[in-house]
Design a binder for these strands. Structure first.
Length: 562
RNA sequence: UGGCCCAUGGUGUAAUGGUAACACUACUGAUUUUGGUUCAGUCAUUCUAGGUUCGAGUCCUAGUGGGCCAACCA
Protein backbone atom coordinates (compact mmCIF):
# COMPACT_ATOMS: atom_id res chain seq x y z
CA UNK A 1 0.00 0.00 0.00
CA UNK A 2 1.51 3.33 -0.98
CA UNK A 3 1.88 6.15 1.50
CA UNK A 4 -0.29 8.35 -0.68
CA UNK A 5 -3.31 6.07 -0.68
CA UNK A 6 -3.04 4.53 2.77
CA UNK A 7 -5.93 5.51 4.98
CA UNK A 8 -5.23 7.32 8.23
CA UNK A 9 -5.81 5.91 11.69
CA UNK A 10 -7.44 8.04 14.35
CA UNK A 11 -4.11 9.15 15.83
CA UNK A 12 -2.96 10.34 12.42
CA UNK A 13 -6.24 12.19 11.99
CA UNK A 14 -5.56 14.00 15.27
CA UNK A 15 -2.07 14.92 14.09
CA UNK A 16 -3.36 16.07 10.71
CA UNK A 17 -5.96 18.21 12.48
CA UNK A 18 -3.28 19.74 14.69
CA UNK A 19 -1.14 20.47 11.67
CA UNK A 20 -4.11 22.00 9.85
CA UNK A 21 -4.79 24.14 12.93
CA UNK A 22 -1.30 25.59 12.69
CA UNK A 23 0.90 23.31 14.76
CA UNK A 24 4.30 23.37 13.02
CA UNK A 25 5.33 20.09 11.44
CA UNK A 26 8.82 20.56 12.85
CA UNK A 27 7.36 20.52 16.34
CA UNK A 28 6.18 16.95 16.05
CA UNK A 29 7.98 14.62 18.44
CA UNK A 30 7.10 11.22 19.84
CA UNK A 31 8.39 8.82 22.43
CA UNK A 32 8.32 5.17 23.41
CA UNK A 33 8.31 5.04 27.24
CA UNK A 34 8.93 1.53 28.61
CA UNK A 35 9.44 0.81 32.29
CA UNK A 36 12.63 -1.26 32.55
CA UNK A 37 11.05 -3.88 34.78
CA UNK A 38 10.71 -6.78 32.36
CA UNK A 39 11.10 -7.98 28.82
CA UNK A 40 9.29 -6.49 25.86
CA UNK A 41 6.60 -8.55 24.17
CA UNK A 42 4.52 -8.46 21.01
CA UNK A 43 2.14 -5.94 22.60
CA UNK A 44 5.01 -3.52 23.18
CA UNK A 45 6.15 -4.14 19.62
CA UNK A 46 2.86 -2.78 18.42
CA UNK A 47 3.33 0.39 20.46
CA UNK A 48 6.93 0.70 19.28
CA UNK A 49 5.80 0.40 15.68
CA UNK A 50 3.08 2.99 16.27
CA UNK A 51 5.38 5.62 17.75
CA UNK A 52 8.39 5.03 15.56
CA UNK A 53 6.11 4.60 12.56
CA UNK A 54 4.70 8.06 13.21
CA UNK A 55 8.24 9.36 13.47
CA UNK A 56 9.04 7.93 10.05
CA UNK A 57 5.80 9.12 8.51
CA UNK A 58 6.22 12.70 9.73
CA UNK A 59 10.01 12.81 9.69
CA UNK A 60 9.86 13.53 13.41
CA UNK A 61 12.26 12.46 16.16
CA UNK A 62 11.24 9.68 18.54
CA UNK A 63 12.79 9.38 21.98
CA UNK A 64 13.36 6.15 23.82
CA UNK A 65 12.49 7.06 27.38
CA UNK A 66 12.83 4.74 30.31
CA UNK A 67 10.12 5.35 32.86
CA UNK A 68 12.36 4.47 35.77
CA UNK A 69 10.67 5.88 38.83
CA UNK A 70 10.39 2.70 40.87
CA UNK A 71 13.77 1.31 41.99
CA UNK A 72 12.13 -1.68 43.65
CA UNK A 73 11.28 -3.15 40.26
CA UNK A 74 13.68 -1.75 37.73
CA UNK A 75 17.07 -3.00 36.64
CA UNK A 76 19.81 -2.09 34.19
CA UNK A 77 19.54 -5.57 32.67
CA UNK A 78 16.09 -4.69 31.37
CA UNK A 79 17.28 -1.36 29.99
CA UNK A 80 19.87 -3.20 27.92
CA UNK A 81 17.40 -5.85 26.75
CA UNK A 82 14.84 -3.22 25.74
CA UNK A 83 17.38 -1.25 23.74
CA UNK A 84 18.47 -4.41 21.94
CA UNK A 85 14.87 -5.32 21.12
CA UNK A 86 13.97 -1.89 19.74
CA UNK A 87 17.10 -1.91 17.59
CA UNK A 88 16.38 -5.42 16.40
CA UNK A 89 12.94 -4.29 15.30
CA UNK A 90 14.80 -1.86 13.09
CA UNK A 91 14.09 1.48 14.74
CA UNK A 92 16.43 4.31 15.65
CA UNK A 93 15.58 6.60 18.52
CA UNK A 94 16.58 10.23 18.58
CA UNK A 95 17.52 10.55 22.25
CA UNK A 96 17.93 7.94 24.94
CA UNK A 97 16.18 9.45 27.94
CA UNK A 98 15.45 8.48 31.51
CA UNK A 99 12.74 9.86 33.73
CA UNK A 100 15.34 9.66 36.47
CA UNK A 101 17.31 12.37 34.65
CA UNK A 102 14.47 14.72 35.53
CA UNK A 103 14.31 13.98 39.26
CA UNK A 104 15.90 17.33 40.10
CA UNK A 105 13.59 19.35 37.87
CA UNK A 106 10.57 17.44 39.16
CA UNK A 107 11.62 18.14 42.74
CA UNK A 108 11.89 21.86 42.06
CA UNK A 109 8.44 21.94 40.49
CA UNK A 110 7.05 20.03 43.47
CA UNK A 111 8.50 22.62 45.83
CA UNK A 112 6.82 25.30 43.70
CA UNK A 113 3.51 23.51 44.04
CA UNK A 114 3.91 23.36 47.81
CA UNK A 115 4.62 27.10 47.91
CA UNK A 116 1.49 27.69 45.87
CA UNK A 117 -0.52 25.60 48.33
CA UNK A 118 -1.20 23.00 45.64
CA UNK A 119 0.63 20.13 47.30
CA UNK A 120 0.97 18.91 50.86
CA UNK A 121 2.69 16.26 52.91
CA UNK A 122 0.33 13.62 54.23
CA UNK A 123 1.57 11.65 57.23
CA UNK A 124 -1.00 8.90 57.37
CA UNK A 125 -0.45 5.22 56.61
CA UNK A 126 -1.36 4.14 53.08
CA UNK A 127 -4.36 2.15 54.30
CA UNK A 128 -5.84 5.27 55.83
CA UNK A 129 -5.25 7.29 52.71
CA UNK A 130 -6.89 4.56 50.66
CA UNK A 131 -9.90 4.55 52.95
CA UNK A 132 -10.32 8.30 52.65
CA UNK A 133 -10.17 8.04 48.88
CA UNK A 134 -13.78 6.84 48.75
CA UNK A 135 -15.06 4.67 45.94
CA UNK A 136 -16.06 5.30 42.33
CA UNK A 137 -19.58 5.97 43.57
CA UNK A 138 -18.78 7.76 46.83
CA UNK A 139 -16.68 10.89 47.25
CA UNK A 140 -13.54 10.81 49.36
CA UNK A 141 -12.82 12.81 52.49
CA UNK A 142 -10.05 15.28 53.16
CA UNK A 143 -6.92 14.22 54.95
CA UNK A 144 -6.40 15.83 58.37
CA UNK A 145 -3.02 16.99 57.05
CA UNK A 146 -4.49 18.70 54.02
CA UNK A 147 -4.30 22.12 55.66
CA UNK A 148 -0.71 21.80 56.79
CA UNK A 149 1.18 25.10 56.51
CA UNK A 150 3.44 25.79 53.57
CA UNK A 151 6.47 26.05 55.84
CA UNK A 152 5.79 22.76 57.54
CA UNK A 153 5.20 21.07 54.16
CA UNK A 154 8.43 22.50 52.82
CA UNK A 155 10.40 21.30 55.82
CA UNK A 156 8.87 17.82 55.83
CA UNK A 157 9.34 17.38 52.08
CA UNK A 158 12.96 18.43 52.42
CA UNK A 159 13.44 15.91 55.22
CA UNK A 160 11.75 13.18 53.18
CA UNK A 161 14.22 13.87 50.42
CA UNK A 162 17.28 13.66 52.61
CA UNK A 163 16.23 10.40 54.19
CA UNK A 164 15.21 11.60 57.61
CA UNK A 165 11.99 9.61 57.58
CA UNK A 166 11.38 5.89 57.18
CA UNK A 167 9.43 4.47 54.24
CA UNK A 168 5.68 4.79 54.54
CA UNK A 169 5.66 7.63 57.02
CA UNK A 170 4.93 10.50 54.66
CA UNK A 171 3.92 11.15 51.07
CA UNK A 172 3.57 14.31 49.04
CA UNK A 173 0.10 14.74 47.60
CA UNK A 174 -1.33 17.15 45.06
CA UNK A 175 -4.19 19.18 46.53
CA UNK A 176 -6.97 18.83 43.95
CA UNK A 177 -10.44 17.56 44.79
CA UNK A 178 -11.37 14.67 47.08
CA UNK A 179 -14.90 14.69 45.67
CA UNK A 180 -13.94 14.44 42.03
CA UNK A 181 -15.80 11.73 40.11
CA UNK A 182 -12.36 10.83 38.79
CA UNK A 183 -10.60 8.87 41.52
CA UNK A 184 -7.24 9.96 40.18
CA UNK A 185 -8.03 13.58 40.96
CA UNK A 186 -8.62 12.84 44.66
CA UNK A 187 -5.33 14.30 45.88
CA UNK A 188 -3.03 11.86 44.06
CA UNK A 189 0.28 10.88 45.61
CA UNK A 190 3.20 12.61 43.90
CA UNK A 191 6.12 11.24 45.93
CA UNK A 192 6.73 8.31 48.24
CA UNK A 193 9.72 7.55 50.42
CA UNK A 194 11.83 4.65 49.22
CA UNK A 195 15.19 3.88 50.80
CA UNK A 196 16.30 1.94 47.76
CA UNK A 197 19.23 2.31 45.42
CA UNK A 198 18.21 3.25 41.90
CA UNK A 199 19.98 1.69 38.90
CA UNK A 200 21.03 5.12 37.69
CA UNK A 201 20.80 7.60 40.56
CA UNK A 202 22.02 5.11 43.14
CA UNK A 203 21.25 6.45 46.65
CA UNK A 204 20.98 10.11 45.67
CA UNK A 205 17.27 10.09 46.35
CA UNK A 206 15.15 8.79 49.19
CA UNK A 207 11.94 9.92 47.55
CA UNK A 208 10.71 8.83 44.13
CA UNK A 209 8.03 10.49 41.99
CA UNK A 210 4.92 8.57 40.97
CA UNK A 211 3.96 7.84 37.38
CA UNK A 212 1.37 10.58 36.96
CA UNK A 213 3.63 13.29 38.28
CA UNK A 214 6.53 12.06 36.17
CA UNK A 215 5.15 11.09 32.84
CA UNK A 216 3.52 14.25 31.60
CA UNK A 217 6.30 16.46 32.91
CA UNK A 218 8.86 14.23 31.20
CA UNK A 219 6.90 14.62 27.98
CA UNK A 220 6.95 18.36 28.55
CA UNK A 221 10.67 18.49 29.27
CA UNK A 222 11.37 16.54 26.10
CA UNK A 223 8.79 18.63 24.24
CA UNK A 224 6.88 15.58 23.07
CA UNK A 225 3.95 16.74 20.96
CA UNK A 226 1.83 13.59 21.06
CA UNK A 227 2.05 11.23 24.01
CA UNK A 228 0.37 7.96 23.14
CA UNK A 229 -0.64 5.34 25.66
CA UNK A 230 -3.13 2.55 26.09
CA UNK A 231 -6.79 2.99 26.94
CA UNK A 232 -6.54 2.23 30.65
CA UNK A 233 -4.75 5.56 31.01
CA UNK A 234 -7.74 7.49 29.76
CA UNK A 235 -8.79 8.55 33.29
CA UNK A 236 -5.22 9.70 33.88
CA UNK A 237 -5.53 12.30 31.15
CA UNK A 238 -7.35 14.74 33.39
CA UNK A 239 -4.50 14.53 35.89
CA UNK A 240 -1.90 14.67 33.13
CA UNK A 241 -3.44 17.94 32.02
CA UNK A 242 -3.76 19.29 35.56
CA UNK A 243 -0.08 18.74 36.27
CA UNK A 244 0.83 20.29 32.93
CA UNK A 245 -1.27 23.32 33.80
CA UNK A 246 0.96 23.87 36.83
CA UNK A 247 4.25 23.90 34.96
CA UNK A 248 3.62 24.75 31.30
CA UNK A 249 4.92 28.05 29.98
CA UNK A 250 3.72 30.00 26.99
CA UNK A 251 5.59 29.40 23.78
CA UNK A 252 6.51 25.82 24.53
CA UNK A 253 4.94 22.68 23.12
CA UNK A 254 2.23 21.38 25.35
CA UNK A 255 2.13 17.59 25.07
CA UNK A 256 -1.16 15.90 24.31
CA UNK A 257 -2.02 12.50 25.71
CA UNK A 258 -4.11 10.26 23.49
CA UNK A 259 -5.15 6.68 24.16
CA UNK A 260 -5.46 3.65 21.91
CA UNK A 261 -6.59 0.09 22.54
CA UNK A 262 -3.78 -2.34 23.28
CA UNK A 263 -3.36 -5.04 20.66
CA UNK A 264 -4.15 -8.56 21.82
CA UNK A 265 -2.78 -11.58 20.01
CA UNK A 266 -4.80 -14.77 19.99
CA UNK A 267 -3.47 -18.02 21.47
CA UNK A 268 -1.09 -16.34 23.87
CA UNK A 269 -0.82 -14.45 27.14
CA UNK A 270 1.23 -11.37 27.67
CA UNK A 271 0.96 -10.34 31.30
CA UNK A 272 4.28 -10.39 33.06
CA UNK A 273 2.92 -12.44 35.92
CA UNK A 274 1.62 -15.15 33.60
CA UNK A 275 4.73 -15.18 31.46
CA UNK A 276 6.79 -15.55 34.61
CA UNK A 277 4.58 -18.44 35.66
CA UNK A 278 5.26 -20.19 32.35
CA UNK A 279 8.98 -19.77 32.90
CA UNK A 280 9.01 -20.74 36.58
CA UNK A 281 6.81 -23.79 36.14
CA UNK A 282 8.96 -25.04 33.30
CA UNK A 283 6.19 -24.87 30.72
CA UNK A 284 8.76 -23.08 28.56
CA UNK A 285 12.53 -22.99 28.88
CA UNK A 286 13.01 -19.27 29.46
CA UNK A 287 12.01 -15.75 28.46
CA UNK A 288 13.43 -16.29 25.00
CA UNK A 289 11.82 -19.67 24.45
CA UNK A 290 10.61 -19.63 20.82
CA UNK A 291 7.06 -20.19 22.03
CA UNK A 292 7.07 -17.04 24.13
CA UNK A 293 5.39 -13.86 22.79
CA UNK A 294 8.40 -11.87 23.98
CA UNK A 295 10.44 -10.04 21.35
CA UNK A 296 13.40 -12.23 22.30
CA UNK A 297 11.25 -15.35 21.91
CA UNK A 298 9.98 -14.24 18.52
CA UNK A 299 13.53 -13.46 17.47
CA UNK A 300 14.76 -16.90 18.50
CA UNK A 301 11.78 -18.47 16.79
CA UNK A 302 13.02 -16.92 13.58
CA UNK A 303 10.30 -14.33 13.16
CA UNK A 304 11.77 -11.59 10.95
CA UNK A 305 11.50 -8.06 12.37
CA UNK A 306 10.03 -6.99 9.04
CA UNK A 307 7.15 -9.37 9.66
CA UNK A 308 6.40 -7.75 13.00
CA UNK A 309 6.44 -4.32 11.39
CA UNK A 310 4.16 -5.16 8.48
CA UNK A 311 1.94 -7.05 10.90
CA UNK A 312 1.64 -4.00 13.15
CA UNK A 313 0.94 -1.89 10.10
CA UNK A 314 -1.92 -3.99 8.83
CA UNK A 315 -3.68 -4.44 12.16
CA UNK A 316 -3.70 -0.69 12.57
CA UNK A 317 -4.76 1.11 15.67
CA UNK A 318 -8.16 1.98 17.12
CA UNK A 319 -10.07 2.26 20.37
CA UNK A 320 -12.08 -0.91 20.62
CA UNK A 321 -11.24 -4.19 22.31
CA UNK A 322 -9.67 -6.64 19.94
CA UNK A 323 -8.04 -10.03 19.56
CA UNK A 324 -5.89 -10.27 16.47
CA UNK A 325 -5.59 -13.80 15.16
CA UNK A 326 -2.05 -15.13 15.35
CA UNK A 327 -2.50 -16.49 11.83
CA UNK A 328 -2.11 -12.92 10.58
CA UNK A 329 1.33 -12.71 12.19
CA UNK A 330 2.17 -16.08 10.65
CA UNK A 331 1.07 -14.79 7.26
CA UNK A 332 3.52 -11.88 7.53
CA UNK A 333 6.33 -14.22 8.61
CA UNK A 334 5.73 -16.42 5.58
CA UNK A 335 5.36 -13.47 3.27
CA UNK A 336 8.80 -12.15 4.20
CA UNK A 337 10.54 -15.50 4.46
CA UNK A 338 9.12 -16.67 1.13
CA UNK A 339 11.08 -13.93 -0.56
CA UNK A 340 14.26 -14.22 1.48
CA UNK A 341 14.80 -17.75 2.79
CA UNK A 342 16.96 -20.09 0.67
CA UNK A 343 15.24 -23.40 -0.12
CA UNK A 344 16.87 -26.53 1.12
CA UNK A 345 15.89 -30.19 1.54
CA UNK A 346 15.49 -31.85 4.91
CA UNK A 347 13.68 -35.00 5.96
CA UNK A 348 12.18 -34.92 9.43
CA UNK A 349 10.56 -38.35 9.63
CA UNK A 350 12.53 -40.60 7.30
CA UNK A 351 11.75 -43.79 5.49
CA UNK A 352 14.47 -45.26 3.27
CA UNK A 353 14.12 -45.44 -0.48
CA UNK A 354 16.40 -47.82 -2.40
CA UNK A 355 16.73 -47.05 -6.10
CA UNK A 356 17.24 -50.59 -7.38
CA UNK A 357 18.61 -49.73 -10.81
CA UNK A 358 20.95 -46.99 -9.62
CA UNK A 359 24.56 -48.26 -9.49
CA UNK A 360 25.69 -49.25 -6.02
CA UNK A 361 28.39 -47.10 -4.45
CA UNK A 362 27.96 -44.30 -6.94
CA UNK A 363 26.59 -40.82 -6.52
CA UNK A 364 26.19 -37.61 -8.49
CA UNK A 365 25.55 -34.00 -7.62
CA UNK A 366 22.39 -32.54 -9.08
CA UNK A 367 21.65 -28.85 -9.49
CA UNK A 368 19.06 -27.19 -7.26
CA UNK A 369 17.59 -23.70 -7.37
CA UNK A 370 18.13 -21.77 -4.14
CA UNK A 371 14.99 -19.67 -4.32
CA UNK A 372 12.47 -19.59 -7.16
CA UNK A 373 11.17 -16.28 -5.74
CA UNK A 374 14.59 -14.71 -6.00
CA UNK A 375 16.39 -15.24 -9.31
CA UNK A 376 19.55 -13.72 -7.85
CA UNK A 377 19.80 -16.44 -5.22
CA UNK A 378 21.53 -18.80 -7.61
CA UNK A 379 21.97 -22.56 -7.57
CA UNK A 380 23.71 -25.21 -5.51
CA UNK A 381 24.61 -28.88 -5.91
CA UNK A 382 22.93 -31.64 -3.94
CA UNK A 383 24.18 -35.26 -3.79
CA UNK A 384 22.00 -38.05 -5.16
CA UNK A 385 22.68 -41.75 -4.67
CA UNK A 386 21.10 -45.20 -4.51
CA UNK A 387 19.79 -44.89 -0.97
CA UNK A 388 17.68 -41.92 -0.02
CA UNK A 389 15.40 -40.74 2.73
CA UNK A 390 11.95 -39.36 2.02
CA UNK A 391 9.24 -38.40 4.52
CA UNK A 392 7.38 -41.36 5.89
CA UNK A 393 4.07 -39.67 5.11
CA UNK A 394 5.08 -39.25 1.47
CA UNK A 395 4.64 -42.96 0.81
CA UNK A 396 1.61 -45.21 1.00
CA UNK A 397 1.22 -48.76 -0.18
CA UNK A 398 -2.09 -47.76 -1.66
CA UNK A 399 -4.03 -44.56 -1.93
CA UNK A 400 -6.68 -42.89 -4.05
CA UNK A 401 -5.95 -40.43 -6.87
CA UNK A 402 -6.16 -37.42 -4.58
CA UNK A 403 -2.91 -38.61 -3.02
CA UNK A 404 -0.21 -37.16 -5.28
CA UNK A 405 2.69 -38.76 -3.47
CA UNK A 406 4.47 -42.08 -3.84
CA UNK A 407 2.46 -45.31 -3.82
CA UNK A 408 3.17 -48.83 -5.02
CA UNK A 409 3.20 -48.88 -8.79
CA UNK A 410 3.04 -45.09 -8.86
CA UNK A 411 5.45 -42.46 -10.11
CA UNK A 412 6.73 -39.39 -8.42
CA UNK A 413 9.34 -36.75 -9.14
CA UNK A 414 12.23 -36.39 -6.72
CA UNK A 415 12.78 -32.65 -6.57
CA UNK A 416 15.76 -31.58 -8.70
CA UNK A 417 16.52 -35.22 -9.59
CA UNK A 418 14.74 -38.17 -11.18
CA UNK A 419 11.31 -39.68 -11.59
CA UNK A 420 10.98 -42.91 -9.62
CA UNK A 421 8.42 -45.69 -9.47
CA UNK A 422 7.72 -47.64 -6.28
CA UNK A 423 8.01 -51.39 -6.88
CA UNK A 424 7.62 -53.01 -3.47
CA UNK A 425 8.16 -52.50 0.24
CA UNK A 426 10.27 -54.20 2.87
CA UNK A 427 8.73 -54.46 6.33
CA UNK A 428 10.11 -55.43 9.70
CA UNK A 429 8.69 -58.03 12.07
CA UNK A 430 6.10 -55.57 13.35
CA UNK A 431 4.86 -54.75 9.89
CA UNK A 432 6.50 -51.33 9.83
CA UNK A 433 7.78 -50.25 6.44
CA UNK A 434 11.59 -50.01 6.58
CA UNK A 435 12.41 -49.63 2.89
CA UNK A 436 10.63 -48.69 -0.27
CA UNK A 437 12.23 -50.25 -3.31
CA UNK A 438 11.98 -48.17 -6.43
CA UNK A 439 13.30 -47.89 -9.95
CA UNK A 440 14.26 -44.64 -11.62
CA UNK A 441 14.29 -43.38 -15.17
CA UNK A 442 17.91 -42.34 -15.86
CA UNK A 443 16.76 -40.02 -18.64
CA UNK A 444 14.42 -38.01 -16.41
CA UNK A 445 16.99 -35.86 -14.63
CA UNK A 446 15.58 -32.43 -13.82
CA UNK A 447 16.83 -29.71 -16.08
CA UNK A 448 18.40 -32.12 -18.59
CA UNK A 449 15.85 -31.08 -21.19
CA UNK A 450 15.07 -34.62 -22.33
CA UNK A 451 11.54 -35.64 -23.18
CA UNK A 452 11.53 -37.84 -20.07
CA UNK A 453 12.63 -34.97 -17.87
CA UNK A 454 9.76 -32.85 -19.11
CA UNK A 455 7.17 -35.48 -18.29
CA UNK A 456 4.30 -34.22 -16.18
CA UNK A 457 4.20 -36.02 -12.86
CA UNK A 458 1.63 -35.04 -10.29
CA UNK A 459 3.77 -35.33 -7.19
CA UNK A 460 7.18 -33.93 -6.32
CA UNK A 461 8.95 -35.04 -3.16
CA UNK A 462 11.92 -33.67 -1.25
CA UNK A 463 14.62 -36.16 -0.30
CA UNK A 464 18.12 -36.50 1.05
CA UNK A 465 20.93 -38.94 0.22
CA UNK A 466 21.47 -41.34 3.14
CA UNK A 467 25.22 -41.50 2.70
CA UNK A 468 25.63 -37.73 2.52
CA UNK A 469 22.95 -36.60 4.95
CA UNK A 470 23.85 -34.79 8.10
CA UNK A 471 21.89 -35.19 11.24
CA UNK A 472 20.39 -32.31 13.14
CA UNK A 473 18.04 -31.72 15.99
CA UNK A 474 14.90 -29.99 14.82
CA UNK A 475 12.48 -28.38 17.23
CA UNK A 476 8.95 -28.24 15.93
CA UNK A 477 7.02 -25.49 17.63
CA UNK A 478 3.30 -25.05 17.69
CA UNK A 479 1.01 -22.59 19.46
CA UNK A 480 1.58 -22.53 23.21
CA UNK A 481 -2.14 -22.42 23.92
CA UNK A 482 -4.95 -24.33 22.30
CA UNK A 483 -7.47 -21.60 23.14
CA UNK A 484 -7.61 -18.24 21.35
CA UNK A 485 -8.01 -16.33 24.62
CA UNK A 486 -6.53 -18.58 27.33
CA UNK A 487 -6.71 -15.97 30.09
CA UNK A 488 -10.19 -14.67 29.32
CA UNK A 489 -12.15 -17.51 30.86
CA UNK A 490 -13.82 -17.02 34.17
CA UNK A 491 -13.37 -20.08 36.37
CA UNK A 492 -10.64 -21.57 34.16
CA UNK A 493 -6.95 -21.03 34.74
CA UNK A 494 -4.99 -20.12 31.63
CA UNK A 495 -2.57 -22.98 32.29
CA UNK A 496 -5.37 -25.44 31.59
CA UNK A 497 -5.14 -24.42 27.95
CA UNK A 498 -1.43 -25.05 27.49
CA UNK A 499 -0.94 -27.09 24.33
CA UNK A 500 0.89 -30.27 25.40
CA UNK A 501 2.34 -30.60 21.90
CA UNK A 502 3.73 -27.09 21.57
CA UNK A 503 7.24 -28.55 21.26
CA UNK A 504 8.23 -31.72 19.48
CA UNK A 505 11.91 -32.53 19.05
CA UNK A 506 12.98 -34.77 16.20
CA UNK A 507 16.19 -36.07 14.67
CA UNK A 508 16.27 -34.91 11.09
CA UNK A 509 18.45 -35.53 8.02
CA UNK A 510 19.62 -32.57 6.00
CA UNK A 511 21.41 -32.00 2.73
CA UNK A 512 25.13 -31.66 3.49
CA UNK A 513 25.48 -28.02 2.46
CA UNK A 514 23.78 -27.06 5.71
CA UNK A 515 26.82 -28.05 7.77
CA UNK A 516 28.09 -24.48 7.66
CA UNK A 517 24.83 -22.85 8.72
CA UNK A 518 25.27 -20.21 11.39
CA UNK A 519 23.07 -19.34 14.33
CA UNK A 520 20.16 -17.18 13.21
CA UNK A 521 20.30 -18.19 9.54
CA UNK A 522 16.95 -18.95 8.00
CA UNK A 523 15.88 -21.53 5.44
CA UNK A 524 12.84 -22.99 3.88
CA UNK A 525 12.90 -26.76 4.28
CA UNK A 526 11.04 -27.47 1.10
CA UNK A 527 7.44 -28.60 1.46
CA UNK A 528 7.75 -28.32 5.26
CA UNK A 529 8.20 -24.79 6.49
CA UNK A 530 10.63 -22.09 7.51
CA UNK A 531 13.39 -22.96 9.94
CA UNK A 532 16.23 -21.08 11.59
CA UNK A 533 19.46 -22.17 13.25
CA UNK A 534 19.06 -22.02 17.03
CA UNK A 535 21.82 -20.54 19.21
CA UNK A 536 22.04 -23.91 20.98
CA UNK A 537 23.89 -25.07 17.87
CA UNK A 538 27.48 -26.25 18.46
CA UNK A 539 30.12 -27.40 15.98
CA UNK A 540 29.16 -30.94 16.90
CA UNK A 541 25.42 -30.53 16.77
CA UNK A 542 23.16 -28.48 14.55
CA UNK A 543 19.86 -27.33 16.07
CA UNK A 544 16.99 -25.86 14.06
CA UNK A 545 13.76 -24.21 15.12
CA UNK A 546 10.66 -24.34 13.01
CA UNK A 547 9.57 -20.73 12.67
CA UNK A 548 6.30 -21.48 10.92
CA UNK A 549 5.12 -24.32 8.71
CA UNK A 550 4.20 -23.76 5.07
CA UNK A 551 0.51 -23.45 4.31
CA UNK A 552 -0.70 -27.00 3.97
CA UNK A 553 -3.81 -27.45 1.87
CA UNK A 554 -3.25 -31.20 1.71
CA UNK A 555 -3.56 -31.45 5.48
CA UNK A 556 -6.95 -29.76 5.19
CA UNK A 557 -8.09 -32.14 2.46
CA UNK A 558 -7.08 -35.06 4.66
CA UNK A 559 -8.79 -33.58 7.67
CA UNK A 560 -12.04 -33.16 5.78
CA UNK A 561 -11.87 -36.78 4.63
CA UNK A 562 -11.96 -37.95 8.24
C1' U B 1 -25.49 2.62 42.70
C1' G B 2 -21.38 7.08 39.88
C1' G B 3 -18.01 8.67 35.94
C1' C B 4 -15.54 7.68 31.37
C1' C B 5 -14.63 4.78 26.78
C1' C B 6 -16.16 1.39 22.87
C1' A B 7 -19.74 -1.23 19.20
C1' U B 8 -18.69 -2.24 10.81
C1' G B 9 -18.12 -9.95 7.68
C1' G B 10 -15.09 -15.52 11.44
C1' U B 11 -10.63 -11.74 12.73
C1' G B 12 -8.35 -6.82 12.41
C1' U B 13 -8.79 -2.11 10.20
C1' A B 14 -11.11 1.75 6.42
C1' A B 15 -15.06 4.84 4.52
C1' U B 16 -15.28 15.29 3.87
C1' G B 17 -23.39 13.11 5.82
C1' G B 18 -23.57 10.56 -0.72
C1' U B 19 -22.33 3.05 -4.42
C1' A B 20 -19.81 -0.27 2.86
C1' A B 21 -13.45 -0.81 1.13
C1' C B 22 -8.64 -3.38 2.28
C1' A B 23 -5.88 -7.42 4.59
C1' C B 24 -6.04 -12.18 7.03
C1' U B 25 -8.87 -16.70 7.68
C1' A B 26 -12.24 -20.19 5.27
C1' C B 27 -14.12 -22.15 0.73
C1' U B 28 -13.99 -22.58 -5.26
C1' G B 29 -11.13 -22.76 -9.52
C1' A B 30 -6.50 -21.87 -12.67
C1' U B 31 -1.11 -22.15 -12.82
C1' U B 32 3.01 -24.77 -10.62
C1' U B 33 9.33 -29.84 -10.77
C1' U B 34 7.46 -27.15 -3.17
C1' G B 35 -0.32 -29.91 -2.18
C1' G B 36 4.45 -23.62 -1.27
C1' U B 37 4.25 -19.11 -4.30
C1' U B 38 1.20 -16.56 -7.89
C1' C B 39 -3.65 -15.47 -10.20
C1' A B 40 -9.12 -15.30 -10.39
C1' G B 41 -13.58 -15.82 -7.58
C1' U B 42 -17.20 -16.59 -3.15
C1' C B 43 -18.51 -14.95 2.12
C1' A B 44 -22.06 -8.02 5.73
C1' U B 45 -29.81 -6.15 6.06
C1' U B 46 -22.60 -1.44 9.75
C1' C B 47 -25.74 -4.06 18.00
C1' U B 48 -31.29 -2.54 18.65
C1' A B 49 -35.21 1.23 18.57
C1' G B 50 -36.47 6.02 17.66
C1' G B 51 -35.06 11.01 15.72
C1' U B 52 -32.54 14.99 12.41
C1' U B 53 -31.76 14.99 6.90
C1' C B 54 -33.34 14.79 -0.03
C1' G B 55 -29.80 11.15 1.92
C1' A B 56 -27.06 8.24 8.26
C1' G B 57 -21.98 3.19 9.36
C1' U B 58 -21.08 8.47 10.21
C1' C B 59 -25.02 13.43 13.75
C1' C B 60 -28.81 13.30 18.30
C1' U B 61 -31.65 10.37 22.19
C1' A B 62 -32.68 5.89 24.63
C1' G B 63 -31.72 0.83 25.20
C1' U B 64 -28.53 -3.49 24.92
C1' G B 65 -23.67 -5.58 25.14
C1' G B 66 -18.42 -5.08 26.33
C1' G B 67 -14.28 -2.47 28.71
C1' C B 68 -11.81 0.94 32.32
C1' C B 69 -11.66 3.60 37.27
C1' A B 70 -11.08 2.74 44.72
C1' A B 71 -1.16 0.56 44.45
C1' C B 72 2.88 4.94 48.51
C1' C B 73 2.77 0.14 40.34
C1' A B 74 3.48 1.86 35.42
Amino acid sequence: MSEATRSLNFIEHIIEDDLAAGFPKGGLRFRFPPEPNGYLHIGHASSICLNFGLGLRYQAPVNLRFDDTNPTKEEQEYVDAIKADVEWLGFRWDRECYASDYFGRLYQWAVDLIRLGKAYVDSQPSEEIARQKGTPTEPGTNSPFRARSVDENLLLFQEMKTGKHPEGTHVLRAKIDMASPNMLMRDPVMYRILHKAHHRTNTDWCIYPMYDWTHGESDYIEQISHSLCTLEFKPHRELYDWFLDQVAEAGKVRPKQREFARRNLSHTVVSKRKLLQLVNQGVVHGWDDPRMPTISGLRRRGCPPEAIRTFADTIGIAKRDNVVDVSLLEFHMREHLNKTAPRVMAVLDPVKVVVLNYPEGESEWVEAENNPEDPGAGFRKVPFSRELYIEREDFREEANRKYFRLKLGGEVRLKNAYIITAEHVVKDARGEIVEVHCTYDPKSLSGSGTEESLKKVKGTLHWVSVAHAMEAEVRLYDRLFSDPVPDQHKDRDFLEFVNPDSLQTVKAFLEPGLSEAKSGEQFQFQRLGYFCVDPDTTPAKLVFNRTVPLRDTWAKVEQQAE
